[in-house]
Amino acid sequence: MLQALLSGILVGGVYGLFSMGFSIAFGVMRIVNFAHGELVMIGMFAAFFAYSAAGVDPLVAIPLAFVVVAALSAVLYLLVYRRFVGRATLQQLLAAIAVALILQTSATLIFGPSAHAVRSNWGSQYLLIGPIFLSYAQLAAFAISVACVLTVEAVLRKTSWGKAIRAVADDPEAAQLVGLNSQVINITAFACSGALAGIAGAVLVSYYPVSPHVGFLLMPIALIATVLGGLGSIGGAFVGGIICGVIQQMTSVLWTSALQDVPLYGVLLLLLAFRPYGLFGRVSAH
């Protein structure tokens, strides 16, 4: 039990990291980015590429994954998502799914359909504390995720860009009236959303194999974590991610790992029925 709880928290840290990215896109632009899992996948491949081509450790390749996915996100925003800002419509969902499929297929063409794993010396070792064993890779991943989340929170609280992002998330129209350029804010927020997915990808690939289809496994987690944390609450999504990790690990220990996502969806349905604004519900502007 304790083992499952602890590894759930560790795994959940990374979930929280990319869920935060997903939550930024939703909170600021009301874009439900169904391709967010694919952005994590691209981050994983970027770090894997650095490892296989130059022997660079995935954690050292974080800046590469950050830059690649942030740039890709900015391009995707300009080409596709820009048209759907403020409206989480069916068209927007379909467009995002199309982007997801295109990214998936492109990854399959470039890297092939099979899974690739990073084999580092330290990544497969475990820290033993009594009966509990924790993988060094997961510990490192968790530490990096927490550091990133704290950084993002600090940026959102303290910098003028962060405050502007939160103002747009609260009320995009009023934000324009006080002189904030929503186009600049949206594109940087979307790039930031992607950057978090990219970092999460580089961190994740240090202990989890990457395949072109991994995005479809990660995407539901981002969705559930965001709803758990409260739609639009960026910090809440991180907590939601950790809860997702714990639920998953508990299920695989107490039940079976084959069905580890089933209770997760159960939680989503219960939440939507009873607490649609999430556990940390927040005020909407209207």
Binding site: K163, R166, A167, A169, D170, D171, E173, A174, A175, L177, R282, V283, S284, A285
Partner: peptide
Amino acid sequence: EGRRIFPNL
């Protein structure tokens, strides 16, 4: 109209 302050700031 309706003030439209940023509620969570």
